[in-house]
Each structure stands twice: as structure tokens, then as C-alpha cells.
């Protein structure tokens, strides 16, 4: 055990030195460590001709322009069409719109909070212990990703509706869930359930239990281990999961729409209010509110990029477990990809 550990450490030191040297020399660290050939001719043969590069880059730019850039610009153009005053009035002047902003800013953080607690518990259970049915638990966590939000909403209606399984009984206890804010929180929590857990499980698996075991052997209690060892190690992954989870929570439409009953000023969140305004043919107001959601999406992207850079950069600048991250890039924050 001790031998294996010191062997691992010296390996780390070697890699660390190689990385440092490769920085000095400006050479790819993988080349220096012999993992990638230093080829003088390779570049010429593996690079596409200039005309092809220009064509493909232009095509990609056009596709992204039509599909993403033009729509975003158009949101703001339509929102500001009648001037900044009308824009401001559309957002804060209408009490129902104002309420929808407050409601979204209440529902989303609550759903995120639930899923943060769940994500940490699930990652601890799945990444630190082996137990029968572990794969099944991981698959169950993924289920909300593939279920249509509308089906999710319907499922909650069947549970809490008046003809539902729990609805009549809850009614007797004086509790109404359907068409109230708690139903919105439940539906949003369902849809965003996997985001934090899916970020944390690979991060915790990559870090491994060594440090926690060391803390345990030094007499730390379970919560001390969590707060002092685990949480600092997973904080970037956690933050990343929170950002993704929150973006989805604020934008959720299908599930929330089904359970909300669309009661204006009571259960219409921002995305639902966009639909209400759109159906009222109040297009400028719909675009004004949509522009707020677009800005929030922009903030999400900026934060996401910031965390990605931090997560990639911090480890090998601050040393310690740094080399691990170098040789085996932490399970790339795959959130947006496979997660959605």
C-alpha cells in the first residue's frame, strides 16, 4: 500500500516536472512525456487545405448565425422596437408580468436547492459506496432527462388532481397542490433533478476517497469530512451543476404549464407569461419579457464559461492534486451535452 502510494507520487512528480518544462519550452506536454509524437511533417499532412478551412469555417459561421445569433438579436430588436420607455413599462408596468418575474425567481432557487441537497447525497452514495442496484439508481437519476416535460406534468396531475391518487385525500387534509406554487416547484424539481447529481458523480469518482479516508483516520466526524474535505474538492463541479440546473429551472415550460392551470398573477412563471402575452397578441410585451429571459441565459453562459476556465486552470496552478487533472482531465464538465 505504502509502496504503491509512493510510486504513484513519484509518477506525479515526474509528470509535474514534465508539464513545467513543456511550458518553458512551449511544447505540448503530451509530446514531452512521449504520449504524442513530435512530428515535423504531420502538421502538413493532417491539416486541411486553406480553401477547405475557409469554406467550412464560413459554413459553420452561417449556420450559427441563422440558427442562434439572428434569433437572439431579433429578441432584443423586437423588445426595444417601441423605445426604451415602452420596454421598461412592458416589464415593470404590468403587475402580472412583474409577479411572473418574482415567481420565477422564487420557484427556480427552491427547486435548485432541493436538487443540490439531493445531488450531494446521491453523489456521496454512488461515488463512495458499492451496493446492489447502484447502476439502477444512476439510471433512475437520468429518467427525467428523457421524459417529456408534458408527461411529467401530467403525472403530477394524476397524483394531485381531484380524480388523482392523492388529490382527494390531501383535499380532506386541507391541502391543495395542483394549480398552486408548490406544484410549480415540484414539477420544476422533477425536470431539473439530474443536473447537479450528474455533475457531481463523475467529479467525486475522479477525486477518489483517499483524502476523506485520511480525514477519517485522523478522527474527523462525517460532517467534518464533508465540510472540510469533500465540499472544497467538489465546489467547482457543484457550482457548475447549480448553474445548469438553475438555467433549466428558470426556463422550464412544459411541465410547469401543465400543473400551473395558468392562473394570471398566481401561477404564471416568466416563460408562461411570455406565452400569455403572445396569445394576447401583445407581441412587444412578450418580446420584452423574453429579452429578460435571454439576458439571464447570457448570464448563465458567462458564468458557465468562467467556471469552466477556473475548473480547468486552478488545479495545476495551485499544485497538489494538480497533476491528476493534467494527465486525466477531470471528467469534462459535460453538463450541457449529455445532460440535457
Amino acid at each position: 500500500m505504502a509502496d504503491a502510494l509512493s510510486g504513484q507520487n513519484s509518477q506525479r512528480v515526474v509528470e509535474h516536472v514534465q508539464i513545467a518544462r513543456s511550458r518553458e519550452l512551449g511544447i505540448d506536454p503530451l509530446v514531452l512525456s512521449g504520449k504524442r509524437p513530435l512530428s515535423t511533417m504531420g502538421r502538413r499532412y493532417t491539416q486541411d487545405p486553406l480553401w477547405l478551412r475557409i469554406v467550412l469555417i464560413s459554413l459553420a459561421a452561417i449556420v450559427m448565425g441563422v440558427l442562434v445569433v439572428i434569433p437572439v438579436i431579433n429578441v432584443f430588436y423586437e423588445a426595444l422596437r417601441d423605445g426604451i420607455v415602452a420596454y421598461g413599462r412592458a416589464i415593470v408596468g404590468d403587475p402580472e408580468t412583474r409577479y411572473s418575474i418574482v415567481l420565477t425567481l422564487t420557484v427556480a432557487p427552491l427547486a435548485v436547492l432541493c436538487n443540490v441537497i439531493f445531488g450531494i447525497a446521491a453523489a456521496w452514495a454512488v461515488a463512495r459506496f458499492r451496493f446492489p442496484g447502484r447502476t439502477l439508481v444512476v439510471t433512475l437519476i437520468d429518467v427525467p432527462l428523457s421524459v417529456s416535460p408534458v408527461v411529467a406534468g401530467l403525472a403530477f396531475v394524476l397524483l394531485f388532481g381531484m380524480q388523482g391518487f392523492l388529490g382527494p385525500w390531501l383535499r380532506k387534509q386541507g391541502i391543495d397542490i395542483l394549480f398552486t406554487v408548490p406544484a410549480l416547484i415540484l414539477a420544476t424539481t422533477f425536470v431539473t433533478l439530474p443536473y447537479v447529481a450528474r455533475e457531481l458523480i463523475p467529479v467525486m469518482e475522479a477525486i477518489g476517497p483517499d483524502e476523506e479516508l485520511a480525514a477519517l483516520s485522523l478522527g474527523a466526524s462525517g460532517w467534518q469530512i464533508f465540510w472540510r474535505v469533500t465540499l472544497p474538492n467538489i465546489k467547482w463541479g457543484l457550482l457548475y451543476g447549480i448553474i445548469l440546473c438553475n438555467a433549466r429551472a428558470m426556463g422550464e415550460f412544459g411541465a410547469v404549464s401543465v400543473v400551473s392551470g395558468r392562473i394570471p398573477g398566481e401561477t404564471t412563471t416568466m416563460p408562461l407569461q411570455v406565452e400569455v402575452l403572445f396569445q394576447d397578441f401583445n407581441s412587444p410585451a412578450a418580446f420584452a419579457l423574453a429579452s429578460v429571459l435571454t439576458l439571464l441565459a447570457g448570464v448563465t453562459l458567462v458564468l458557465k464559461g468562467w467556471v469552466e476556465r477556473h475548473h480547468a486552470v486552478t488545479p495545476h496552478l495551485t499544485d497538489q492534486e494538480g497533476t491528476d487533472e493534467q494527465t486525466q482531465p477531470t471528467p469534462k464538465m459535460s453538463g450541457s451535452t449529455v445532460t440535457v
Partner: peptide, 22 residues
């Protein structure tokens, strides 16, 4: 370009629907 690829994920679907319909 790389970060714009994530926009459809971050953008609420209602906004996408609204702007594409227009």
C-alpha cells in the same frame, strides 16, 4: 462560437419558440 453552441440549452424554450415564430 464555442460558447454560443450552449445558448440553445440556456435559452428558455418559450423564448426560442417566440422568436422563431416571428
Amino acid at each position: 462560437l464555442d460558447s454560443l453552441v450552449d445558448l440553445p440549452f440556456a435559452l428558455p424554450t418559450a423564448v426560442a419558440g417566440l422568436v422563431f415564430s416571428h
